[in-house]
Amino acid sequence: MEWALAIPQGINLKRLDDPWAEGALTPVTKVRAVMEKALGPVRFSRLYFGQEFCEKALPATSELEEALAAAHNAGLAFTLVTPYVTETALARSEELLEILVRLAPRAEVVVNDWGILYLLSRKFPTLVPVLGRLLNKILRDPRLSGDRLGKGEVSTSFQTSYLAAPAMQALLEDFKVRRIELDYPPQGLDPRLPDWGYRSSLYVPLGVITTGRICLMNAWGKEKEDKFKTSWQACDRKCRFYWLEMSDPSGQVRKSRDWRIVQKGNTVFYVQREGFLAKGLEEAARTGVNRIVFQPEPI
């Protein structure tokens, strides 16, 4: 198993010196214990730098250079993680890719936007595209359990992905995508994952429920007329200082022993508890997942 350490931004690069420092969202020591019990000693050989969710949190070019140097010094392979972007951040993304291709021409790039994949194929053909988990449309709905899952074929329909359809396999082949990324969903991994035709990576311990350009945290402290807007707004990145524990007293989304629901910045996650995490790792090993991305902080 290949182990990747995910670090969202430059100020978090100190985690390279101490990967097991406790995180705000992640009980790192417990997660480590579960990972090592399931899969043996964890030795990171790859750095995932960047994040998938917010164009306003794209790294500066200097941060990327710093991350590349840090990965090199630590003897780690390098993967740049990119978010979905509006036109506003497309040019900045391209700048980052220009630096990356100059300094590490065969580095990986995780794409979570069809436009970034297209850009890679047209302008940066030596960089290696990885299809990010936001472009893998498997449901990750905390309400999807019990009776709703059904049995047999119905259950399988929720476990498999459109990525396993021949038309999508052919399309991704055209774009030289060989690796796809996954969350461990409430309904479990597809037992037929090896037949999808890709190498696959699993993120732990946070799964993505939903993400968007309107940010509750960004709105905090703004005048009413400036709240809940999308592009062109400055962001003071309060997500560096706060996160939100979510609960639903109406019971539409029930409390679970398998996860807790949190929001960081513009994205809602389920943080997997130990039993569920262990189950996911066991299934990952069984279904041929060959990379675990340990992501203690998502943004």
Binding site: L139, R143, V208, T211, S247, S250, Q263
Partner: peptide
Amino acid sequence: FCHVSHAFGGAFCHNPAWSY
């Protein structure tokens, strides 16, 4: 990029009961 389904009790996001 919303990985939930309205089939499972409506929209996950704009449930006014969410507590933070």
